[in-house]
């Protein structure tokens, strides 16, 4: 299995490995700069986990799901391509999560974590786990949506455009919208950063995770459409 995974990583390209590392390194470097500018770092650092790592992972998944130079050969293998694709997705997500978790040690040790109101009275372990769960839930949501969108539109750029628009709307509008429109609450992706005071933070995190988990099998089913996959690689 290890050999298989190492091949899948190389097939997807080394950039898959470097992108989350670069993002985290960039955030740390920028945090240093902001520290000297006297900016409050907690919220900025947390945004790296909850806002940036998920969309970056989503973009990477969209790329992996729609671009395989040897797709036609893959589709003739006794090992089903939808399983291969899912394995790649799992590798991407686990890698991003691993990098995120390692990076999360830095704000925890330096006491630079930004904690939502609902976690403020919890002990240190619950706080740490809750915060990690928060960005992992958002990451899974973005990954699932990226997978489904890229397979439905059969195009990485289209999927990225949709993800980009969702991200902007989530950052700038959702905090206000959830106040007046309760059914949007399960779609609130960055509550820790833009509305830490909300009373439904825990429920929201679970709902976001659940939506991600529901969409994942949808993407897996779409991966069965070999005709669509072949068409997707020839377009652009």
């Amino acid at each position: 299995m290890f050999t298989r995974i190492s091949y899948e990583l190389r097939v997807m390209g080394r950039r898959i490995i470097w992108i989350p590392i670069t993002l985290v390194a960039g955030f740390i470097a920028f945090a240093f700069l902001l520290h000297f500018l006297g900016v409050n770092l907690e919220r900025f650092i947390s945004s790296g986990f909850e806002m940036f790592l998920p969309i970056v992972t989503g973009f990477v998944v969209a790329t992996s799901a729609t671009q395989d130079p040897a797709l036609e050969i893959q589709l003739t293998m006794p090992r089903k391509y939808h399983n291969t694709s899912l394995l790649r997705l799992v590798v991407i997500v686990l890698w991003s999560i691993a990098i995120g978790l390692i990076a999360a040690i830095i704000p925890t040790v330096t006491h630079l974590t930004f904690v939502p109101d609902q976690l403020k009275n919890s002990n240190a372990a619950v706080k740490f786990l809750g915060l990690q769960f928060s960005w992992i839930a958002t990451t899974l949501w973005f990954v699932s949506v990226a997978l489904v969108a890229s397979l439905l539109t059969r195009n990485r750029s289209a999927s990225s455009a949709i993800l980009g628009a969702i991200w902007i709307v989530e950052v700038l509008f959702m905090a206000h919208l959830v106040e007046t429109t309760s059914w949007l609450q399960p779609l609130f992706l960055f509550p820790t950063i833009v509305a830490p005071q909300i009373t439904f933070w825990t429920v929201n995190r679970l709902e976001v995770l659940l939506i991600g988990l529901i969409l994942l099998p949808v993407g897996w089913l779409l991966l069965h459409n070999t005709e669509g996959l072949l068409k997707g690689t020839s377009e652009e």
Binding site: F52, V56, A62, G164, W167
Partner: peptide
């Protein structure tokens, strides 16, 4: 993809 990721961040 790297440009696209960066572009979303830049636009914001």
């Amino acid at each position: 993809p790297l440009y696209q990721i960066g572009f979303v961040g830049y636009w914001f």
